[in-house]
């Protein structure tokens, strides 16, 4: 593992990824350079098909990229075996998916406890922590509800609790507010900002939703498989996009 010298949570250098081969080859990432710092909420924005989700998958370690380097908290993903990659994800990364991906046959507590169970934590401990996390996201007393009985906002809060329960350092969010109304979206983003502020953590959000842009510390805009601009939003250093 490399040292995390510059307080970078995520350090991406010259990353390329092409889907398909020959005439049907589609380059999704074309030498992307990009960083996310510890303690910040960074948004990746851009039009559909620009490579946002591919980049997010690569950072999360769920997609193998063709060339380049990605370091997450000092660990080089490209040097990891499949098993090391799985182990790294289960310990260090929390996921919030666009479609929540809560398991409908499990109740909220069981859904939230899944990352701890994957990490080998006992069921009793995992469910105790899950109850506590659900309380933190405002779902106290709803732990035994099926996700099917919860509203979209409540389901997303369960998903956030699941992403945080094992105290990961990097939280990956794919369109976390796309299924929510403005009010619920704002509440979720406020929660994610608080998470990002915790020491040694970072939240990376891919979104189309311009209603939540102001919650970001920085924004990275992608175009055609490349990072086009980076802008400081909160923290006030600059409000303009910085060319890559």
């Amino acid at each position: 593992m490399a040292d995390n010298k510059n307080n970078y949570a995520v350090h991406v250098r010259d990353v390329s990824k092409t889907f398909g081969v020959g005439a049907t080859a589609v380059p999704a990432l074309k030498g992307v350079n990009f960083d996310a710092r510890e303690g910040e909420l960074l948004m990746i924005v851009g039009p559909s098909g620009c490579g946002k989700t591919t980049l997010l998958s690569a950072i999360a370690g769920t997609l193998q990229f063709d060339t380049g380097e990605i370091d997450v908290f000092g660990s080089a993903l490209q040097k990891m075996s499949k098993n090391e990659n799985s182990a790294f994800r289960r310990q260090n990364i929390g996921f919030i998916f666009q479609e929540f991906h809560l398991i409908p046959t499990l109740n909220a507590v069981e859904n939230v406890s899944v990352p701890l169970l994957i990490n080998g934590v006992s069921r009793a401990v995992a469910e105790r922590k899950a109850h506590a996390l659900l309380a933190q996201v405002g779902l106290e007393g709803r732990g035994h509800e099926s996700p099917l009985n919860l509203s979209g906002g409540q389901q997303q809060r369960v998903a956030i609790a699941r992403a945080l329960v094992h105290e990961p350092r990097l939280i990956i969010c794919d369109e976390p507010t796309s299924a929510l109304d403005k009010e619920n979206g704002a509440r979720i983003m406020e929660l994610l900002r608080q998470v990002a502020r915790a020491p040694g953590r970072c939240v990376v959000v891919v979104t189309h939703d311009n209603r939540i842009f102001h919650h970001a510390d920085r924004m990275t805009e992608m175009e055609d498989g490349r990072v086009a601009r980076v802008a400081e939003i909160n923290g006030g250093h600059s409000s303009s996009f910085i060319p890559n």
Partner: peptide
């Protein structure tokens, strides 16, 4: 499959 994919993304190994 999508739920299993989510578990796999969260770090569940193929063996598990």
């Amino acid at each position: 499959l999508r739920h299993l994919g989510a578990l796999k993304a969260m770090g569940a190994s193929d063996g598990l």
